[in-house]
């Protein structure tokens, strides 16, 4: 499986200048990689696009999102993909950088988002703070803890 990211990059890097974010959204962005935007924006163009449609940061380059928006309306782009252009794409999971988005797509890993993104919460019992609070409480330690774990 370690070969897969290399193969993916060899193909997508050449065609789409793929940056291997590991959570490919090309189909929803007019087959234009949003990670090639200098600000790596996932949800449309910033307000700095120049009068000629070029990038605020790299004036010689057309804004990635100007291109993406145009391509998304192309007749060869499937309608479902065109509609997805306007959907909110979640924040990048930085842990996936360099991994193969192909395997992340099949496993569903690329669609995992932080719980709060879709309104869910987790049990606060699991926080480091509450765990440490417990450990810090001398009464909560079992008998013999310090004997078994002497300070250096």
């Amino acid at each position: 499986m370690r070969l897969l990211p290399i193969v993916e990059h060899a193909v997508k890097g050449r065609v789409w200048d793929c940056r291997m974010c590991g959570q490919c959204v090309l189909h929803s962005t007019g087959m234009t990689c949003p990670m090639t935007c200098p600000k790596t924006l996932r949800n449309g163009p910033c307000g700095g696009v120049r009068e000629d449609g070029h990038c605020e940061v790299t004036p010689e380059m057309e804004c990635v999102w100007t291109v993406a928006e145009r391509r998304s309306r192309s007749v060869i782009n499937p309608n479902a993909w065109e509609r997805e252009f306007d959907h909110l794409r979640p924040p990048v999971d930085n842990r996936l950088r360099g991994t193969a988005s192909w395997s992340n797509l099949f496993s569903g890993r690329d669609r995992q988002t932080p719980l709060g993104w879709d309104g869910a919460t987790y049990s606060p019992d699991l926080t480091v703070e509450s765990s440490l609070g417990e450990v810090d409480d001398i009464d909560s330690l079992d008998a013999g803890f310090h004997e078994r774990n002497p300070l250096p």
């Binding site: 932080p114 719980l115 709060g116 993104w117």
Partner: peptide, 19 residues
């Protein structure tokens, strides 16, 4: 746009993590 949703989450009582 992502930041707007994250800020709304704070007002609704959760961090982005779900805490």
């Amino acid at each position: 746009p992502q930041l707007i949703r994250v800020a709304r989450g704070l007002a609704e009582g959760r961090y982005l993590s779900g805490r």
